[in-house]
Computed example of a mutant assay.
Amino acid sequence: MPSSVLSALEFLLQESVPESFVWVTYGDDEYLHTLTLQKLRKIWLPQPEDELNLSEFSGDDTTWADVYRELVTVSMFTTHPRVVIVTEADSFVSRYRVELEKWVSESSRRNILALSVHQWLPQTRLAKLVAEKGVVIECSFSKRKHPELVSWIKKWARQQYGLILESEATELLLESVGPICGLIDQELRKLAGLGKKSVTTEMVRELTGTWRTKTVWEIIHAALEGKTAVALSEVHRLLEAGETPLGILGMMTAMLRRYTLATHRYLHPLPGQPRVTLQGALSESGVPGFALKDEEMRLRRLGRHRAAQLVHWLRKADAAMKGSLATEPRLILERLIVVLGQPEAADGRLAPL
């Protein structure tokens, strides 16, 4: 990792944050992107009323004119800067690279632009300008070395939840859940709910049973193979065991992001390089070799349109379960699973919300 690039793992533990008018988060861990942007939003817009100064766009369906209009708008009712966040911004950066280079190269701005992308090539002119004038944060988790992940989990557990994890307990948690940041954070939240400060291996073994993770894989596989009744039956099994709809959604999100990453990698080859095969894209997104053939079949059945929209669907479902809609969280989860299993919805017109 270049010296000018921060690791999201280190950044999330820091108390101080650099000042800059342009930020880029890149990498394959969607949850780390979310945590990083959440931290920045709290710093940039500390009061609820400051949210009026926030504009969020999806890079797939916005234009530079939309973004630039917000960047040059002066805040009328607060001293805080306006903040413009563009998520899933790979295609946006490709389309408006010249405009972005011009904007970044000009004198420092008061308002803030944050771009969230999967890929960020450091040799491009835009990347060099951002490295000079802004901040770049790498959001990767599974690619980190095992000792680094163990160390970070212990620090994160203490900082966020006031938990003290024994080394062996941390090792067991990582082994049980796998190197998936969202799932690990979810399990730490459960452990914090026990009301005990120190976490032992016995507590981890009892609460984070791998059968839950395995069951969520089975739910996703059944849904994508058109076995909707089987998928819903497994959901009900988890709910009866005490899992919450939001908890199941969190595990599904960490797993389904592989399809989004693989689809983007397949459809958008790196400059000067040949397009990778779909199995190659799945491999790069973290799918193990023995599962590539089956995962390719499921992704093809899902279709590129729905795969590209998965992240947006999951974010909307998460917000809905947290109160943005009056619908029961269980019904939101069931609707998502039903839509995943509808091959006639491959054009993306049928959405879960």
Score class of each variant (00 low, 15 high):
Ser7Leu: 06
Ala8Leu: 12
Phe11Trp: 09
Pro18Phe: 13
Pro18Thr: 07
Glu19Ser: 15
Ser20Asp: 05
Val22Ile: 14
Trp23Ser: 09
Thr25Gly: 06
Thr25His: 05
Gly27Pro: 13
Asp28Met: 13
Lys39Pro: 06
Leu40Phe: 11
Leu45Asn: 08
Pro46Trp: 11
Gln47Thr: 13
Asp50Ser: 08
Asp50Tyr: 10
Leu52Cys: 10
Asn53Ser: 15
Ser55Val: 13
Ser58Thr: 06
Tyr68Ala: 03
Glu70Ala: 13
Glu70Thr: 14
Val74Ile: 15
Thr78His: 07
Thr78Lys: 04
Val83Met: 08
Val84Asp: 08
Val84Trp: 07
Ile85Asp: 07
Thr87Arg: 11
Glu88Arg: 15
Asp90Met: 03
Asp90Asn: 03
Val93Glu: 07
Arg95Ala: 13
Arg97Leu: 07
Leu100Gln: 03
Leu100Tyr: 02
Glu101Gly: 03
Lys102Gly: 07
Trp103Phe: 02
Ser107Phe: 07
Ser107Ala: 09
Ser108Glu: 11
Ser108Gly: 02
Ile112Thr: 05
Leu113Trp: 09
His118Gly: 06
Gln119Glu: 03
Gln123Gly: 10
Thr124Trp: 04
Arg125Gln: 14
Ala127Glu: 10
Glu132Ala: 15
Ile137His: 05
Phe141Pro: 00
Lys143Ile: 05
Arg144Asp: 07
Lys145His: 07
His146Arg: 10
Glu148Ala: 15
Ser151Lys: 11
Lys155Val: 00
Ala157Asp: 00
Gln160Pro: 08
Gly162Cys: 06
Ala169Cys: 00
Thr170Cys: 13
Leu172Phe: 04
Leu173Thr: 00
Leu173Lys: 00
Val177Thr: 06
Ile184Met: 01
Ile184Asp: 00
Asp185Cys: 14
Arg189Pro: 06
Leu194Met: 04
Lys196Gln: 12
Thr201His: 00
Glu202Lys: 07
Leu207Thr: 14
Gly209Pro: 01
Arg212His: 01
Arg212Ser: 00
Trp217Cys: 01
Glu218Leu: 02
Ala223Arg: 01
Leu224Glu: 01
Glu225Tyr: 02
Gly226Trp: 02
Ala231Cys: 01
Ala231Val: 04
Leu232Pro: 08
Val235Ser: 02
Val235Lys: 04
Arg237Leu: 03
Arg237Gln: 04
Glu240Trp: 08
Gly242Met: 05
Glu243Trp: 01
Thr244Gln: 10
Met252Leu: 12
Met255Arg: 12
Tyr259Val: 10
Thr260Trp: 15
Thr260Ser: 14
His264Thr: 12
Pro269Phe: 09
Pro269Tyr: 09
Leu270Cys: 09
Pro271Tyr: 08
Arg275Gln: 08
Gly280Cys: 12
Ser283Asp: 06
Ser283Tyr: 09
Gly289Asn: 13
Lys293His: 10
Arg298Leu: 15
Leu299His: 11
Leu299Tyr: 08
Arg300Lys: 15
Arg301Cys: 01
Leu310Gly: 04
His312Ser: 15
Leu314Met: 15
Arg315Ile: 14
Lys316Thr: 13
Lys316His: 13
Pro329Leu: 05
Arg330Asp: 02
Ile332Ala: 07
Ile332Trp: 05
Arg335Ile: 04
Leu336Met: 04
Leu336Asn: 03
Glu344Asn: 11
Arg349Asn: 12
Arg349Thr: 15
Leu353Val: 11
Leu353Met: 14
